[in-house]
Design a protein around this nucleic acid. Structure first.
Length: 340
DNA sequence: CGAGGGACCCGCCAAA
DNA sequence: ATTTTGGCGGGTCCCT
Protein backbone atom coordinates (compact mmCIF):
# COMPACT_ATOMS: atom_id res chain seq x y z
CA UNK A 1 0.00 0.00 0.00
CA UNK A 2 2.46 2.58 1.18
CA UNK A 3 4.85 1.72 -1.64
CA UNK A 4 8.59 1.47 -1.63
CA UNK A 5 10.74 3.32 0.80
CA UNK A 6 12.30 6.61 -0.16
CA UNK A 7 15.74 5.05 -0.31
CA UNK A 8 14.44 2.38 -2.60
CA UNK A 9 12.97 5.01 -4.90
CA UNK A 10 16.28 6.78 -5.09
CA UNK A 11 18.11 3.58 -5.91
CA UNK A 12 15.47 2.64 -8.42
CA UNK A 13 15.79 5.80 -10.42
CA UNK A 14 19.36 4.91 -11.26
CA UNK A 15 18.45 1.43 -12.26
CA UNK A 16 15.27 1.39 -14.28
CA UNK A 17 13.30 3.98 -16.15
CA UNK A 18 9.61 3.41 -15.47
CA UNK A 19 8.74 5.08 -18.76
CA UNK A 20 10.23 2.11 -20.59
CA UNK A 21 7.31 -0.27 -20.61
CA UNK A 22 7.57 -3.89 -21.72
CA UNK A 23 4.49 -6.05 -22.06
CA UNK A 24 4.57 -9.81 -22.42
CA UNK A 25 2.89 -11.55 -25.35
CA UNK A 26 2.43 -15.28 -25.61
CA UNK A 27 0.50 -17.83 -27.66
CA UNK A 28 -3.19 -17.98 -26.84
CA UNK A 29 -3.24 -14.59 -25.22
CA UNK A 30 -6.30 -12.40 -24.86
CA UNK A 31 -5.97 -9.36 -27.12
CA UNK A 32 -8.00 -7.03 -24.95
CA UNK A 33 -5.56 -6.86 -22.08
CA UNK A 34 -2.62 -6.36 -24.38
CA UNK A 35 -4.74 -3.73 -26.08
CA UNK A 36 -5.29 -1.87 -22.83
CA UNK A 37 -1.56 -1.61 -22.28
CA UNK A 38 -0.94 -0.55 -25.87
CA UNK A 39 -3.73 2.00 -25.66
CA UNK A 40 -2.36 3.65 -22.53
CA UNK A 41 1.39 3.32 -23.07
CA UNK A 42 1.77 2.79 -26.80
CA UNK A 43 -0.34 5.48 -28.43
CA UNK A 44 1.17 8.84 -29.17
CA UNK A 45 -0.52 10.95 -26.55
CA UNK A 46 -0.35 14.72 -26.65
CA UNK A 47 -0.86 14.72 -22.88
CA UNK A 48 2.42 12.89 -22.49
CA UNK A 49 4.31 14.74 -25.19
CA UNK A 50 6.90 16.10 -22.82
CA UNK A 51 7.76 12.68 -21.44
CA UNK A 52 6.33 9.84 -23.48
CA UNK A 53 6.36 6.15 -22.71
CA UNK A 54 8.32 3.72 -24.81
CA UNK A 55 6.39 0.50 -25.26
CA UNK A 56 7.88 -2.83 -26.29
CA UNK A 57 5.85 -5.97 -26.85
CA UNK A 58 8.09 -8.91 -26.10
CA UNK A 59 7.71 -12.66 -26.10
CA UNK A 60 9.75 -15.73 -25.34
CA UNK A 61 9.22 -17.17 -28.80
CA UNK A 62 9.75 -15.25 -32.00
CA UNK A 63 6.29 -14.85 -33.51
CA UNK A 64 3.89 -15.12 -35.06
CA UNK A 65 1.87 -15.99 -31.96
CA UNK A 66 -1.75 -17.06 -32.28
CA UNK A 67 -4.02 -14.88 -30.17
CA UNK A 68 -7.54 -15.62 -29.04
CA UNK A 69 -9.87 -14.56 -31.83
CA UNK A 70 -8.06 -16.22 -34.71
CA UNK A 71 -5.30 -13.84 -35.59
CA UNK A 72 -1.65 -13.72 -34.79
CA UNK A 73 0.90 -11.14 -33.84
CA UNK A 74 4.62 -10.85 -34.16
CA UNK A 75 6.32 -9.31 -31.15
CA UNK A 76 9.27 -7.07 -31.80
CA UNK A 77 11.52 -8.31 -29.00
CA UNK A 78 12.44 -11.28 -26.89
CA UNK A 79 13.31 -11.60 -23.23
CA UNK A 80 16.19 -9.20 -23.68
CA UNK A 81 13.57 -6.44 -23.63
CA UNK A 82 13.41 -6.99 -19.87
CA UNK A 83 16.96 -5.81 -19.45
CA UNK A 84 16.21 -2.12 -19.65
CA UNK A 85 12.46 -2.03 -19.00
CA UNK A 86 11.36 -0.07 -15.95
CA UNK A 87 7.78 -1.25 -16.08
CA UNK A 88 6.94 -4.85 -16.94
CA UNK A 89 3.33 -5.82 -17.60
CA UNK A 90 2.03 -9.38 -17.62
CA UNK A 91 -1.45 -9.68 -19.17
CA UNK A 92 -3.74 -12.55 -18.27
CA UNK A 93 -2.43 -15.98 -19.12
CA UNK A 94 -4.90 -18.31 -20.81
CA UNK A 95 -3.82 -21.47 -19.03
CA UNK A 96 -3.60 -20.99 -15.29
CA UNK A 97 -2.19 -24.50 -14.98
CA UNK A 98 0.82 -23.83 -17.15
CA UNK A 99 4.06 -23.22 -15.33
CA UNK A 100 6.06 -20.40 -16.90
CA UNK A 101 9.46 -21.42 -18.20
CA UNK A 102 12.48 -21.10 -15.98
CA UNK A 103 13.89 -18.55 -18.43
CA UNK A 104 10.85 -16.30 -18.15
CA UNK A 105 10.67 -16.58 -14.38
CA UNK A 106 14.35 -15.82 -14.08
CA UNK A 107 14.10 -12.85 -16.42
CA UNK A 108 11.17 -11.46 -14.45
CA UNK A 109 13.02 -11.86 -11.17
CA UNK A 110 16.07 -10.16 -12.64
CA UNK A 111 13.99 -7.27 -13.92
CA UNK A 112 12.43 -6.85 -10.50
CA UNK A 113 15.77 -7.06 -8.74
CA UNK A 114 17.05 -4.37 -11.07
CA UNK A 115 14.25 -2.12 -9.93
CA UNK A 116 11.57 -2.54 -12.57
CA UNK A 117 8.04 -2.34 -11.29
CA UNK A 118 6.13 -5.49 -12.05
CA UNK A 119 2.50 -5.24 -13.11
CA UNK A 120 -0.06 -7.96 -13.68
CA UNK A 121 -3.52 -7.84 -15.17
CA UNK A 122 -6.17 -10.43 -14.37
CA UNK A 123 -4.62 -13.91 -14.34
CA UNK A 124 -1.19 -12.46 -15.09
CA UNK A 125 -0.82 -12.60 -11.32
CA UNK A 126 -0.22 -16.34 -11.69
CA UNK A 127 2.92 -15.64 -13.69
CA UNK A 128 4.23 -13.17 -11.12
CA UNK A 129 3.36 -15.61 -8.35
CA UNK A 130 5.14 -18.45 -10.14
CA UNK A 131 8.25 -16.26 -10.27
CA UNK A 132 7.94 -15.74 -6.53
CA UNK A 133 7.41 -12.03 -6.90
CA UNK A 134 4.17 -12.03 -4.93
CA UNK A 135 5.44 -14.02 -1.96
CA UNK A 136 4.37 -12.39 1.26
CA UNK A 137 2.58 -9.63 -0.59
CA UNK A 138 -1.00 -8.67 -1.18
CA UNK A 139 -2.17 -9.22 -4.72
CA UNK A 140 -5.31 -8.92 -6.80
CA UNK A 141 -6.59 -11.13 -9.54
CA UNK A 142 -9.92 -11.82 -11.17
CA UNK A 143 -12.41 -12.89 -8.53
CA UNK A 144 -12.98 -16.14 -10.37
CA UNK A 145 -9.32 -17.10 -10.05
CA UNK A 146 -8.70 -15.76 -6.57
CA UNK A 147 -9.28 -19.07 -4.74
CA UNK A 148 -7.06 -20.93 -7.17
CA UNK A 149 -4.29 -18.39 -6.82
CA UNK A 150 -4.46 -18.56 -3.05
CA UNK A 151 -4.44 -22.35 -3.10
CA UNK A 152 -1.55 -22.72 -5.48
CA UNK A 153 0.58 -19.97 -3.98
CA UNK A 154 -0.13 -19.94 -0.25
CA UNK A 155 2.46 -17.23 0.39
CA UNK A 156 0.42 -14.76 -1.64
CA UNK A 157 -2.12 -12.77 0.33
CA UNK A 158 -4.86 -12.73 -2.28
CA UNK A 159 -7.31 -9.85 -2.14
CA UNK A 160 -10.43 -10.99 -3.94
CA UNK A 161 -12.27 -7.78 -3.16
CA UNK A 162 -10.30 -4.99 -4.80
CA UNK A 163 -9.74 -3.64 -8.29
CA UNK A 164 -6.01 -3.50 -7.93
CA UNK A 165 -3.22 -3.59 -5.37
CA UNK A 166 -0.30 -1.18 -5.44
CA UNK A 167 2.47 -2.71 -3.41
CA UNK A 168 5.04 -0.23 -4.60
CA UNK A 169 7.27 -2.24 -6.88
CA UNK A 170 4.72 -4.97 -7.59
CA UNK A 171 1.21 -4.12 -8.72
CA UNK A 172 -1.61 -6.43 -9.65
CA UNK A 173 -5.10 -5.87 -10.95
CA UNK A 174 -8.32 -7.83 -11.14
CA UNK A 175 -10.32 -8.46 -14.32
CA UNK A 176 -9.42 -6.92 -17.65
CA UNK A 177 -11.15 -3.61 -17.09
CA UNK A 178 -9.42 -3.21 -13.75
CA UNK A 179 -6.26 -3.35 -15.81
CA UNK A 180 -7.32 0.01 -17.24
CA UNK A 181 -7.66 1.38 -13.75
CA UNK A 182 -4.22 0.12 -12.84
CA UNK A 183 -2.64 1.51 -16.01
CA UNK A 184 -4.22 4.88 -15.27
CA UNK A 185 -2.90 4.59 -11.74
CA UNK A 186 0.60 4.19 -13.17
CA UNK A 187 0.13 7.22 -15.38
CA UNK A 188 -0.97 9.16 -12.32
CA UNK A 189 2.14 8.08 -10.41
CA UNK A 190 4.39 9.07 -13.30
CA UNK A 191 2.69 12.22 -14.54
CA UNK A 192 0.18 13.36 -11.97
CA UNK A 193 -3.57 13.35 -11.70
CA UNK A 194 -4.26 15.93 -14.35
CA UNK A 195 -2.47 14.00 -17.05
CA UNK A 196 -4.03 10.74 -15.88
CA UNK A 197 -7.47 12.33 -16.00
CA UNK A 198 -6.81 13.61 -19.49
CA UNK A 199 -5.80 10.15 -20.63
CA UNK A 200 -8.92 8.73 -18.98
CA UNK A 201 -11.06 11.28 -20.79
CA UNK A 202 -9.45 10.22 -24.02
CA UNK A 203 -10.36 6.62 -23.27
CA UNK A 204 -13.83 7.69 -22.17
CA UNK A 205 -13.59 5.83 -18.89
CA UNK A 206 -14.17 7.01 -15.35
CA UNK A 207 -11.18 9.13 -14.38
CA UNK A 208 -10.22 7.09 -11.42
CA UNK A 209 -11.57 4.14 -9.56
CA UNK A 210 -9.79 3.59 -6.33
CA UNK A 211 -7.85 0.36 -6.03
CA UNK A 212 -9.74 -0.56 -2.91
CA UNK A 213 -13.13 -0.32 -4.48
CA UNK A 214 -15.20 -3.47 -4.55
CA UNK A 215 -14.93 -5.58 -7.66
CA UNK A 216 -18.58 -6.34 -7.62
CA UNK A 217 -20.25 -3.40 -9.24
CA UNK A 218 -23.68 -4.28 -10.42
CA UNK A 219 -23.72 -1.78 -13.23
CA UNK A 220 -20.61 -2.52 -15.27
CA UNK A 221 -20.21 1.03 -16.44
CA UNK A 222 -20.19 4.12 -14.30
CA UNK A 223 -23.61 5.77 -14.33
CA UNK A 224 -22.21 9.21 -15.02
CA UNK A 225 -24.29 9.42 -18.18
CA UNK A 226 -26.21 12.53 -17.27
CA UNK A 227 -29.65 11.04 -17.72
CA UNK A 228 -29.48 8.71 -14.74
CA UNK A 229 -30.61 10.30 -11.50
CA UNK A 230 -27.71 8.89 -9.50
CA UNK A 231 -25.24 9.99 -12.14
CA UNK A 232 -26.76 13.47 -12.19
CA UNK A 233 -26.47 13.74 -8.46
CA UNK A 234 -22.84 12.67 -8.69
CA UNK A 235 -22.10 15.28 -11.32
CA UNK A 236 -23.92 17.85 -9.24
CA UNK A 237 -21.83 16.97 -6.21
CA UNK A 238 -18.56 16.99 -8.14
CA UNK A 239 -19.18 20.57 -9.15
CA UNK A 240 -19.45 21.78 -5.60
CA UNK A 241 -17.09 19.58 -3.63
CA UNK A 242 -15.78 22.59 -1.76
CA UNK A 243 -19.16 23.27 -0.20
CA UNK A 244 -20.67 21.35 2.67
CA UNK A 245 -22.69 18.51 1.18
CA UNK A 246 -24.65 15.82 2.94
CA UNK A 247 -25.90 12.61 1.44
CA UNK A 248 -29.35 13.99 2.09
CA UNK A 249 -28.52 16.78 -0.35
CA UNK A 250 -27.51 14.23 -2.95
CA UNK A 251 -30.70 12.26 -2.42
CA UNK A 252 -32.75 15.41 -2.84
CA UNK A 253 -30.88 16.15 -6.04
CA UNK A 254 -31.85 12.73 -7.33
CA UNK A 255 -35.47 13.16 -6.15
CA UNK A 256 -35.29 10.09 -3.96
CA UNK A 257 -35.62 9.32 -0.32
CA UNK A 258 -32.25 8.96 1.39
CA UNK A 259 -32.83 5.26 1.81
CA UNK A 260 -33.48 4.40 -1.81
CA UNK A 261 -30.83 6.82 -2.97
CA UNK A 262 -28.29 5.00 -0.84
CA UNK A 263 -29.47 1.72 -2.33
CA UNK A 264 -29.36 2.93 -5.92
CA UNK A 265 -26.03 4.51 -5.31
CA UNK A 266 -24.50 1.39 -3.91
CA UNK A 267 -25.78 -0.69 -6.81
CA UNK A 268 -24.25 1.73 -9.27
CA UNK A 269 -20.98 2.66 -7.65
CA UNK A 270 -20.16 -0.16 -5.28
CA UNK A 271 -19.79 2.03 -2.20
CA UNK A 272 -21.93 4.19 0.01
CA UNK A 273 -22.59 7.83 -0.93
CA UNK A 274 -20.74 9.22 2.05
CA UNK A 275 -17.66 7.20 1.38
CA UNK A 276 -17.73 8.10 -2.30
CA UNK A 277 -18.04 11.76 -1.42
CA UNK A 278 -15.00 11.74 0.77
CA UNK A 279 -13.09 9.72 -1.83
CA UNK A 280 -13.95 12.34 -4.45
CA UNK A 281 -12.83 15.14 -2.19
CA UNK A 282 -9.53 13.42 -1.60
CA UNK A 283 -9.17 12.78 -5.33
CA UNK A 284 -9.86 16.43 -6.05
CA UNK A 285 -7.12 17.43 -3.66
CA UNK A 286 -4.43 15.49 -5.54
CA UNK A 287 -3.84 17.98 -8.37
CA UNK A 288 -3.76 20.80 -5.83
CA UNK A 289 -1.14 19.04 -3.76
CA UNK A 290 0.87 18.19 -6.84
CA UNK A 291 0.74 21.47 -8.63
CA UNK A 292 0.70 24.14 -5.94
CA UNK A 293 2.45 25.03 -2.74
CA UNK A 294 -0.79 25.85 -0.98
CA UNK A 295 -0.66 24.79 2.64
CA UNK A 296 -2.34 21.47 3.25
CA UNK A 297 -5.07 23.21 5.25
CA UNK A 298 -5.99 25.40 2.26
CA UNK A 299 -6.08 22.46 -0.07
CA UNK A 300 -8.31 20.58 2.35
CA UNK A 301 -10.79 23.38 2.74
CA UNK A 302 -10.83 23.93 -1.02
CA UNK A 303 -12.14 20.41 -1.53
CA UNK A 304 -14.60 20.38 1.32
CA UNK A 305 -12.62 19.49 4.42
CA UNK A 306 -12.84 22.62 6.54
CA UNK A 307 -11.10 20.84 9.37
CA UNK A 308 -7.44 20.17 8.55
CA UNK A 309 -7.16 17.27 10.96
CA UNK A 310 -10.11 15.68 9.28
CA UNK A 311 -8.62 16.24 5.85
CA UNK A 312 -5.43 14.52 6.88
CA UNK A 313 -7.30 11.60 8.40
CA UNK A 314 -9.51 11.12 5.33
CA UNK A 315 -6.58 11.49 3.00
CA UNK A 316 -4.68 8.83 4.86
CA UNK A 317 -7.72 6.58 4.85
CA UNK A 318 -8.06 6.69 1.10
CA UNK A 319 -4.47 6.96 -0.01
CA UNK A 320 -2.47 5.41 2.80
CA UNK A 321 -0.21 8.38 3.49
CA UNK A 322 -0.51 11.97 4.63
CA UNK A 323 -1.16 14.85 2.20
CA UNK A 324 2.28 16.32 2.87
CA UNK A 325 3.93 12.96 2.32
CA UNK A 326 1.97 12.55 -0.91
CA UNK A 327 3.13 15.93 -2.13
CA UNK A 328 6.72 15.11 -1.27
CA UNK A 329 6.56 11.69 -2.91
CA UNK A 330 5.03 13.19 -6.01
CA UNK A 331 7.69 15.87 -6.32
CA UNK A 332 10.41 13.29 -5.78
CA UNK A 333 9.04 11.15 -8.57
CA UNK A 334 8.86 14.04 -10.99
CA UNK A 335 12.49 14.89 -10.35
CA UNK A 336 13.52 11.38 -11.09
CA UNK A 337 14.10 11.92 -14.79
CA UNK A 338 16.81 9.50 -15.75
CA UNK A 339 18.85 10.53 -18.73
CA UNK A 340 17.43 8.69 -21.70
C1' DC B 1 -6.02 12.00 22.19
C1' DG B 2 -10.58 11.34 23.92
C1' DA B 3 -15.43 12.28 24.48
C1' DG B 4 -19.87 13.87 22.99
C1' DG B 5 -23.02 14.62 19.38
C1' DG B 6 -24.34 13.94 14.87
C1' DA B 7 -24.14 11.81 10.26
C1' DC B 8 -24.16 7.74 8.03
C1' DC B 9 -25.04 2.89 6.94
C1' DC B 10 -27.66 -1.13 6.64
C1' DG B 11 -30.82 -4.86 8.06
C1' DC B 12 -35.50 -5.20 8.80
C1' DC B 13 -40.27 -4.65 7.77
C1' DA B 14 -44.63 -2.75 6.56
C1' DA B 15 -46.79 -0.72 2.76
C1' DA B 16 -47.33 0.33 -2.07
C1' DA C 1 -47.02 -13.25 -5.32
C1' DT C 2 -43.18 -10.41 -6.33
C1' DT C 3 -40.67 -6.34 -6.39
C1' DT C 4 -39.69 -1.78 -4.89
C1' DT C 5 -39.99 1.74 -1.63
C1' DG C 6 -38.95 4.43 2.38
C1' DG C 7 -39.21 4.83 7.42
C1' DC C 8 -37.07 3.04 11.73
C1' DG C 9 -33.55 1.58 14.96
C1' DG C 10 -29.16 1.09 16.58
C1' DG C 11 -24.52 0.30 15.78
C1' DT C 12 -20.64 2.43 13.66
C1' DC C 13 -17.99 5.91 11.93
C1' DC C 14 -17.03 10.69 11.42
C1' DC C 15 -16.53 15.37 12.84
C1' DT C 16 -15.98 18.84 15.90
Amino acid sequence: MAGASGLYDIVRCYMANPRKVAVLAFPGMAPFELGVVVEVFGLARPELAHDPYELTVFAEQAGPLAAIGGFSLTPSAGLEALRDAGTVVIPGCPDKGAEPSAELKGALRDAHARGARMVSICSGAFTLAAAGLLDGREAATHWRFAPLLAERYPKVRVRPDVLYVDDGDVLSSAGSAAGIDLCLHLVRLDHGSEVANAVARGLVVAPHRDGGQAQFIELPVSPRAGDQPVGRAMDWALERLGAPLSVGDLARQAHMSPRTFARRFHEAVGMSPGRWLSAQRVAASLPLLEGSDDPVEHVGSAVGFPNPANFRAQFRRHRGLSPAAYRRAFRARRQERPAA
